[in-house]
């Protein structure tokens, strides 16, 4: 397991743990970004190993999508705050059956 893969896996697991264990939405968003970062690292490394330009293109796409998704997520969280709701995921249970 090369260091690049280790770093990528570590980033991914850190992000996963943050998403699962933290209750605040902002923290979960950060965790999501960390997961994406970890996946990007691994993808870049693998693209470098195989010399595949398609992999690098995918990395650029992923960064762009991550940025867009971060914007949308932050907007939603801001909306929640403006609407007076708390930022805890546990209190947002309208989908409960």
């Amino acid at each position: 397991m090369t260091p690049a893969l280790q770093v990528g896996l570590a980033l991914f697991c850190l992000g996963l743990a943050t998403v699962l264990l933290r209750g605040r939405l902002l923290a979960m968003l950060l965790g999501l970004e960390l997961m994406i970062a970890g996946v990007t690292v691994i993808l870049t490394y693998q693209a470098g190993i195989f010399g595949d330009p398609g992999g690098l293109a995918a990395v650029v796409l992923v960064i762009a999508v991550a940025a867009a998704e971060a914007v949308v997520g932050l907007c939603l969280i801001l909306r929640l705050h403006h609407g007076g709701r708390s930022g805890e995921s546990g209190s947002l249970a309208e989908l409960r059956e």
């Binding site: 699962l20 209750g23 995921s89 546990g90 947002l92 249970a93 989908l95 409960r96 059956e97």
Partner: peptide
């Protein structure tokens, strides 16, 4: 499976 809580859903996904 339908508690309405995000963390539950995330756990199930994982």
């Amino acid at each position: 499976l339908k508690s309405g809580r995000l963390s539950d859903y995330m756990w199930w996904i994982v």
